[in-house]
Design a protein around this nucleic acid. Structure first.
Length: 550
RNA sequence: GCCAUGUUGGUGAAGUGGUUUAACACGCCGCCCUCUCAAGGCGGUAUACACGGGUUCGAACCCCGUACAUGGUACCA
């Protein structure tokens, strides 16, 4: 085709496109940022919520832009209407909000490089494609699905690469007349790239995370514009990231095989290419097989899962940071007073291979998170959890605020705070003895031992013990009580001569613990006793008496 | 099939040619710590660098093959 014919074809195909590339280049000038500032973007499809893996990517985008005083923007990639879900973007904003991942620019907060929704940018894509047609770098392709399938079968038999390229790209060299005829027949078409590449040539690119990678040059005539005039991801990526001046494209690993194509598109469009950073997938092991964490199969892929189960979002955030940079975890352990934002993340500390999603580790991180919170904080956070997910318990928490905070504050001060809560929902279970109303109902149902404790001995003990003393004084008094009643003052003495004693001081404590908490394990016993006071302790001893006499 | 990337103990990982008899964290087990747990301390988790060649005085680290895994091979992103 001559240049004149190509221009004619371009006008024929896109009569409504009147702007030129130059117009758009002017509309989206360079960003005025410092040299090292990174411009990153998160491009989710509006499918309702953000998958953990995508969230991980968004977190990356956000953190690197923030660290370099750059820009992080959100672009809704809704070029495939079939995938879109009604109100799908709302879910994305919500999930991002929960993790305090705030875009500097988006369809919500605006920005100079919009629209930030791809379906509103169709004209832009078509303008560039029109230009490509004029240059002979793109062409309409009228192949039907059946024809393409046939080619694939042939390629499978011949064990060659599958796709539309070289000799298989039959519509590549259609004459203007032929095209006009097909258009007149109302044949449907897509616009394909007329790839100038040769698969025998190698290209080498440097990925920020994966390092040097080698590929054969792209020679596929991939689809640029679909039948409905909408762009494919490839085209949209190249044009948007150019116009919006993205400096670092951080995206999932599933895109690495498209690198040669993208590199080629940047080249033929005359754009400078952003840096690429391909993140390793978050995976899950199932029946011995490793696969990507799946939206459909794995509940833990959804942000809402953590909210429902009661794992604090900041703990999940911390977990994401530990898989983001391998040295974050150690740093955080040694800098307890710092937050994620104080850590300098780098690409070279990012995993190259897949990362198995480890709920055990998340649990541990969550425990650490709770241990660093004060009783008041744990109380109020738990309150907002129960408000949504456990109304009944919520009411009890509200009514017993003062006590609850006291119980939640036990063994919180000092260098080694308790780590017994991993989820908000654990509070109900772990502190079942904290609220009288609950204790009366449940009381000893959870106690599984078959021992019966001496009620009158405990009554005598409570009568004689002073709760208004220090922990040490209390324990000394308890030891004294033990020895005057035939119990060893220390477990060691008892172990030496077990026949001389009825038991040891630990047995006294155990009896008391079971009677007042309904369990054999609890935080510091004396602290609990102090909060309850003698009256309530005696009530519970009576409760226990009734229980064993039943 | 083709293309690409990856493979360090139960798990996540450090490590980019000699200081590695391979860090650290999680899990599990044991011991210790003035009452139980949790936490903490100490120790353990028998042969952890996929396999086979090569380069080198020397390789987990470089090269080549094999196996396995993952991703792509769509008018999905």
């Amino acid at each position: 085709m001559t240049e004149k014919e190509r221009i004619e074809l371009a006008e024929l195909l896109f009569p409504n496109i009147t702007k030129t590339r130059e117009d758009y280049e002017k509309m989206y000038p360079e960003r005025n940022l410092s040299d090292k500032a990174m411009v990153t973007r998160f491009g989710p499809s509006p499918t309702g919520f953000v998958h953990m893996g995508s969230l991980f990517g968004a977190f990356c985008d956000y953190i690197y832009a923030k660290q370099s005083n750059g820009i992080f923007y959100l672009r809704i990639e809704d070029t495939d209407q079939k995938r879109s879900v009604e109100n799908g973007t709302e879910g994305i904003f919500n999930d991002l909000d929960a993790f305090s991942i705030m875009p500097n620019e988006s369809s919500k907060v605006g920005g100079k490089y919009g629209p930030y929704i791809q379906s509103e940018r169709t004209e832009i894509y078509q303008t560039y494609v029109k230009d490509l047609i004029k240059q002979g770098l793109a062409y309409p392709c009228f192949m039907t699905e059946e024809e393409i399938n046939q080619i694939r079968e042939e390629q499978e038999i011949n064990k060659t690469k599958i796709g539309i390229y070289g000799m298989y790209a039959v519509d590549r060299d259609l004459s203007l007349e032929e095209i006009k005829e097909k258009l007149a027949n109302k044949e449907e078409y897509v616009i394909r790239l007329k790839s100038p590449g040769n698969a025998n040539n190698q290209i080498e690119i440097e990925d920020c995370i994966k390092g040097k990678m080698k590929f054969p040059e792209n020679d596929m005539d991939i689809v640029l514009l679909k039948k409905d005039g909408t762009p494919t991801y490839h085209l949209a990526h190249v044009i948007d990231d150019h116009l919006m001046h993205t400096t670092h494209v951080i995206r999932g690993d599933e895109w690495v095989s498209s690198i040669p194509l993208h590199v080629q598109l940047f080249e033929i469009l005359g754009f400078t290419r952003p840096e690429y950073a391909h993140t390793a997938p978050i995976t899950k092991k199932e029946n011995g097989n490793i696969r990507k964490l799946s939206k459909r199969k794995d509940p833990e892929a959804k942000v809402s899962y953590y909210e429902e189960v009661g794992i604090p979002i900041p703990a999940v955030h911390l977990y994401l940071a530990t898989i983001l940079n391998s040295n974050f975890e150690e740093w955080y352990l040694n800098n307890q007073d710092k937050s994620i934002n104080d850590f300098e993340f780098t690409f070279d500390k990012m995993a190259v291979g897949g990362t198995l999603f480890d709920l055990d580790k998340l649990n541990n991180i969550s425990k650490t998170y709770f241990s660093r919170k004060s009783g008041e904080e744990v109380y109020s956070e738990t309150l907002s959890y129960t408000e949504k997910f456990d109304k009944e318990y919520h009411q009890l928490l509200v009514e017993n605020k003062e006590d609850m905070i006291k119980f939640l504050s036990i063994e919180k001060d000092g260098p080694r705070p308790r780590k017994d809560i991993a989820k908000y929902s654990d509070v109900k279970e772990e502190f079942s003895y904290a609220i009288d109303e609950m204790f009366k109902k449940e009381n000893y149902s959870k106690y599984e031992g078959d021992k019966q404790y001496d009620v009158s001995l405990m009554r005598e003990y409570i009568d004689n013990i002073n709760l208004d003393v220090t922990n040490e004084e209390w324990f000394n008094a308890t030891k004294e009580f033990a020895s005057t009643h035939g119990y060893a003052a220390s477990p060691k003495d008892y172990k030496k001569n077990p026949d001389d004693y009825k038991g040891h001081v630990g047995d006294i404590c155990e009896a008391l613990r079971v009677m007042i908490t309904g369990r054999t394990k609890s935080p510091d016993l004396f602290s609990i006793m102090k909060i309850l006071g003698k009256t309530r302790i005696n009530e519970r001893i009576s409760l226990y008496e009734n229980y064993i006499n039943k």
